[in-house]
Amino acid sequence: MLIELKKAGRRYHMGQGEFWALKDVTLSIPEGQLVTILGPSGSGKSTLLNIMGGIDRADAGTVRVAGVDLSHASEGDLTQFRRDTVGFVFQFFNLIPNLTVRENVEVTADNAKKPLPIDEVLQAVTLSSMADRFPSELSGGEQQRVSLARAVVKNPALLLADEPTGSLDFATSRDILRLLVQINETYHTTIVLVTHNAAIADMTDRLIRLRSGEVEEDRLVGRLIKAEEVTW
């Protein structure tokens, strides 16, 4: 298994009290699976993703990804894990505004062990002709494709996408989803996708539904539709 969570929990302090954004989550994800995490706002989707990606820590239980115990890893080990194993795609792209498209991808390639050729990745996301542009010169969809290229270029074992289509129009969203499937198939990358849209789950292997921080539903879907067929 690439990802194994046992009774994982995450607690937040709110004023005088505290609340568990995630509680007793136990699940495992094998290599190469394309998984959708679904749930309403505040259900703990992003928190679960962040914990899997080592950008946040669980307060309870254990989280093991690619053989690394993220619950007990040192800061250095977590950094190494993020560098070698995981790629992120964020809803608001989080590109570095004063680096060009190519440089935004290079930033990840620079510290990767075996990066993919940058030109090949840019070609894959159809951004070759915009390689020298700055993020402010791109549309939202183009920016998200840069974000995707940046995550993929290091050829990570795990790609985590937090609402990757959340700030895009339908057509562009379908484009991004198609790219995600393509990456999964081409590089055998495990992809965990967080979304509000239930229709997206139909194009993936598996659906995990969260409610109030707990797993409400976990079932295999079997890629019922293609990315182009996803509706909103």
């Binding site: 993020r82 560098r83 070698d84 964020f90 570095i96 990840t108 510290n111 940046r150």
Partner: peptide, 16 residues
């Protein structure tokens, strides 16, 4: 801070 957070998420160490 947001940029730094992104870079940290991408595997850059604090010292880098």
């Amino acid at each position: 801070r947001a940029q730094l957070g992104t870079l940290k998420a991408m595997g850059y160490s604090t010292w880098e």
